[in-house]
Nucleic acid binder design. Structure first.
Lengths: 138, 138
DNA sequence: GTTCCTGCAAAAGCTTTGCAGAAGA
DNA sequence: TCTTCTGCAAAGCTTTTGCAGGAAC
């Protein structure tokens, strides 16, 4: 997406479109790898000479509050982030550590929510082995 | 459960039944509050005079490896633990922070796992407001 | 010009590690 | 007795905070 469009999206959500926020948002929309703050930091510091860790955290928290990105609480070590804010499932491979997306019908998932509770976000995720890490079948 | 039975369970899983491990395991089986390591530490230090944080972490990791307890990766701040190792869903209230259990059919949840992936653990959890924190209906 | 943001340094909080003494088999 | 575990101190990591300079409007 054009940087100008990204800036417009931020403005539309009441977020001042600074260079840094646009870069973080752009990274999350382009890379569907559920990166950690550190991964984003390493990638962006290569591109931009000065880009502090603090700013990554500031930008991520601002984008989270605006609802433009999502936090993925799957890995115990660190928080992961996702530019895809639509409801979808996650699969984490215990061998290679990669996190995969898969489609789920949000209405079906929500139907499991116990009565009396007001659901705001639903999460379905599996851990196991991905096809690449499984031994080939005979 | 009797301490002797707890010790037998640990032994059966190849875990040497020390006083500390029995106490941690007992706590998780008795309290269904998905406590953090710190919560367990605070509770047990009141009961036992000497009980270090390191030992809590050591015991939890040992019990995890033995499959006697489960880690609940729901809160971004800290790891939570659960003495209930059967498949079940979680609901985290954004107001009071409490984590509730609810029943789900493991087979139904597993059916959402994408083909080609080998599922080892399935997790379904919601965030939102619990009945106590919701405004009363008219 | 005023407000809000960036980024450095420092700190805070959770978890792990190294190692000497102690407990379990 | 020999192995394994405990627990203190210290360190490692992720994330947050305070604050001065700078960018955005």
């Amino acid at each position: 997406m054009e940087r100008q469009n990204l800036a417009a999206m931020l403005s539309a959500h009441g977020v001042r479109p600074t260079q840094q926020r646009i870069a973080v948002f752009d990274y999350l929309l382009t890379h569907h790898t559920h990166p950690s703050a550190d991964t984003i930091y390493n990638a962006l510091s290569r591109e931009y000479p000065v880009f502090s860790r603090t700013t990554i955290y500031n930008s991520l928290n601002t984008l989270l509050e605006a609802g433009l990105i999502r936090a993925v609480t799957i890995t115990p070590e660190e928080q992961r982030f996702d530019g895809n804010t639509s409801d979808h499932g996650h699969f984490r491979c215990l061998s290679c550590g990669e996190i995969f997306d898969f489609e789920v019908d949000p209405a079906v998932i929500r139907s499991f929510c116990p009565s009396g509770f007001r659901e705001e976000q639903s999460n379905l995720f599996f851990t196991g082995r991905c096809p690449r890490c499984l031994p080939p079948r005979h």
